[in-house]
Amino acid sequence: MMRRSQIVFFLIILSAMAIVAIGFALQSSGDSNDNNNSSNTSSNEPITLRVAVNPVIEPWIREAAEDYSRDNPRVKNRPVTIQVISQDSLTVWQGESGWSVLNHPQVWIPEANYALQYVQEGNLGLRYTVLENTLAQTPIIWGAYQSRAEVILNKYGSFNGKTIQQTAELEAWSNIGGDSAWRFIKIGFSRPDSKDSGFAALLTLASAYAESPSLNNQLMNDSALWAWLGPIVDSVPNFSSLGADPADRMVNTRQSAIEIALLPENQWLIHYGDLSKIEPILLYYPENYLLLDFPFAIWDGQETTEEERQAAADFGKFLLSDAQQRAAGEKGLRPAKLTDLAQFTPFNTAANQVQLTLAGSPISLPGRAGALSLLRWFEGYRTAP
């Protein structure tokens, strides 16, 4: 028979083993609950969709993102948040944006498809693919105060890139029959080496010089083109004060800062009413026009999850809905899906000035190497603000 002391010893051992077993069971149960909680948290974690967008179309996209969020969108029961980031494409396709495989927006809406083409040509490792070829469109066009436009028309008989260049060469309004009180000829467009709309203006001018819608790398390296552009660039008083929307600057400074400008059509239309209170504004469409078409592109790599892809596709479809296309039209943009521009207020306000159907030919752009050559010329030529 076992002694009493031995029985007590075995009871103590059995009790200890039971305590250990219960501890393991509780820990296992806790781990299971933690895993379940973690799984539930993960499944309900918000999807943040970063959308980099060109400044020209940014006001519409920001408002659209707010409208989209009001409906509490979800993908696989996960709420979707849209984060809009203002981004000019120039820094992206020149490799200066800081974007990489590990740091990039899931969605990119550049000013035009050529920005995506330049990214590919540059072998920058940025893997974007187009989901929608265009969300809306706007051409680059001329505008001028009526008094200034009439002087140019009286002198040269037409208002276009060629006659603007001839005007710029003469520097002062008094030299072409204008009022001497107007002093120097003041032309405006955004800075071409930092703003996409400014680069688009420079390409539009190159097309006017060539009298052709086809731009190639050889032309971009032509010193004769550079010499021709020089007086126009010199006629911009201060690029740094113009920002991304020179038409807004015109409203605030009247004729003292800009009298003639080459801008996206939607900027003219949005500010047309306010500008016309200063003096009637006349709009002129280049024979060969550069059309900003704002494609909707998504990062095409394993870094983009299935849920993010679905969220991006849903947001793209939302932007092409009738309601959002009408909202784009009210921002002075030409909607991708709605062709009756007369129904939109900005187009009605400037009805007698707008080409509802664009005449002429769309400009085909040079390759990335040619575009870089034109930018390098500008940077070397215009070192002042």
Rank of each mutant, 00 (worst) to 15 (best):
L11A: 14
I12Q: 15
S15Q: 05
A16D: 05
M17G: 07
M17L: 15
I19C: 14
Q27F: 03
D31Q: 09
D31V: 00
N33R: 13
N40Y: 09
L49G: 06
N54F: 02
V56F: 01
Y68I: 02
P79D: 12
V80M: 03
T81Y: 00
Q83A: 04
V92Y: 06
W93V: 03
L102N: 15
L102C: 01
H104Q: 06
V107R: 05
W108N: 04
Q117E: 12
Y118G: 11
Y118V: 04
L126G: 08
L126M: 05
E132L: 06
E132H: 14
N133Y: 06
A136M: 07
G143W: 01
Y145V: 01
R148E: 07
A149M: 08
A149T: 01
N154L: 02
S158C: 08
S158M: 05
T163N: 14
T167K: 00
A168W: 15
W173K: 03
S174A: 15
D179W: 05
R183H: 05
I187S: 12
I187P: 05
G188Q: 10
D196Y: 03
G198D: 01
G198S: 05
P213Y: 04
L215T: 07
M220H: 11
D222L: 02
L225Y: 08
L225E: 11
P231G: 06
N238G: 03
L242G: 13
D245T: 09
V251Y: 00
R254S: 10
S256F: 12
A257K: 04
E265H: 04
N266I: 01
I270D: 00
S276A: 08
E279K: 02
Y285Q: 04
N288E: 07
L291F: 12
E303T: 08
T304D: 04
T305G: 14
R309L: 06
Q310C: 13
K317M: 07
Q325R: 10
R326Q: 12
E330Q: 14
T339N: 13
L358I: 03
G360W: 06
P362Y: 06
S364K: 07
L365H: 12
P366T: 07
G367I: 08
G370W: 02
E379F: 02
G380N: 12
Y381L: 09
R382E: 11
R382L: 02
T383K: 13
